[in-house]
């Protein structure tokens, strides 16, 4: 049996976790075994019946008074107890902050290895991401119960093929009081208007080539016209031109936009790790030999301070 943790926040499924399920579904077919899922907390109940579309035949609802908000150790214990009683061969979650965190707690509790961010598995051999995806590693894992997280933005998050029938079973795992010692006690929701980097359809990012803090106004203008978000490279946050929360990269935010516009960005591996999940990349650069062009779908050779206002004006003209 494959047991997958389906990540959610207050009952809202993380769409990236559905990519993990699509991977798990094909693994289940290859291994000729069932795919079952764990949802933690009553709030997640409405998700359960939707998982049949992803090949999940049984959903285990973990219920406990303490599951009213995210708590990594308690989630890990709930997930682990079902994996153990069910004799799971593969224990999977999505390689997000929470998914990796919960799996690391499961690994610590069982004193087993955990393999983070795999992109394939076949015959006990797997491929996983290193350097935020700039390099790949082939490795093997001999454990009877394999603990792995699946790299986000790797498998489609839409349902594929026909749905199977899902049965839903509640269970009440035994959770020690201290497993709730780390738990969300409060949430701070920003008043910010506008779309976030991770949700934006279009991300317009600037690098050192923007030239100054003030230079970002042309990026902001275009973003406000098309409802996009503004990002930047690590060089820019190091220079203090933009806050770190705008940084796209291996140690910043990972974005998966429909269109990523890289303005005056050279294309270091650190940056590419953050934007390679995007479907299309438009590079705007004065240097036709900039490494970013190797990874770009489209390019405009020129100064972003000329090109962006022209694009902005053209959009306003076209859309009236």
């Amino acid at each position: 049996m494959i047991l997958a943790l389906v990540e959610h926040d207050k009952g809202v499924v993380n769409p990236l976790a559905l990519g993990m399920l699509n991977f798990a579904k094909s693994l289940a077919a290859e291994q000729n075994c069932a795919l079952e899922a764990v949802l933690v907390g009553e709030e997640a109940r409405s998700i359960a019946s939707t998982l049949g579309a992803f090949g999940v035949t049984k959903v285990h609802m973990a219920l406990h008074d303490g599951f009213d908000d995210y708590s990594p150790e308690a989630w890990a214990q709930a997930f682990l107890s079902k994996a153990e009683t069910g004799g799971a061969k593969f224990v999977l979650s999505i390689g997000t902050d929470r998914g990796n965190e919960v799996m690391a707690h499961v690994a610590a509790r069982t004193n087993q290895s955990m393999v983070a961010n795999i992109i394939s598995y076949s015959d006990a051999e797997m491929t996983r991401l290193r350097w935020g995806g700039s390099l790949l590693e082939e490795s093997t894992l001999a454990d009877e119960m394999k603990l792995m997280t699946v790299a986000p933005h790797t498998f489609p998050t839409e349902e594929e093929g026909s749905a199977v029938e899902v049965t839903i079973e509640d269970y009440s795992p035994e959770i020690a009081e201290k497993d709730f010692r780390v738990k969300i006690s409060k949430r701070i929701v920003p008043e910010a208007d506008g779309v976030s980097l991770t949700d934006a359809e279009v991300v317009i990012s600037g690098g050192r080539g923007v030239g100054s803090e003030a230079g970002f106004s042309v990026l902001e203008d275009l973003a406000s016209t098309i409802g996009g978000a503004v990002g930047c490279s690590r060089a820019v946050t190091s220079l203090g031109w933009r806050p770190h929360s705008d940084q796209v990269g291996q140690t910043g935010t990972r974005v998966a936009a429909e269109l990523y516009i890289a303005c005056g960005i050279s294309g270091a591996a650190q940056h590419m790790a953050g934007c390679k999940g995007s479907k299309n990349l438009l590079a705007i650069n004065t240097d036709p030999d900039a490494p970013i062009l190797q990874n770009a779908t489209y390019a405009v050779i020129g100064d972003l301070h000329d090109v962006l206002p022209a694009i902005n004006a053209e959009i306003k003209k076209v859309t009236g």
């Binding site: 062009l293 489209y298 390019a299 405009v300 020129g302 100064d303 090109v307 022209a310």
Partner: peptide, 12 residues
């Protein structure tokens, strides 16, 4: 990579 043009003239 598909080069869409040079400078402001590439906007359309």
């Amino acid at each position: 990579v598909q080069i869409l043009g040079e400078g402001a003239a590439a906007a359309p």
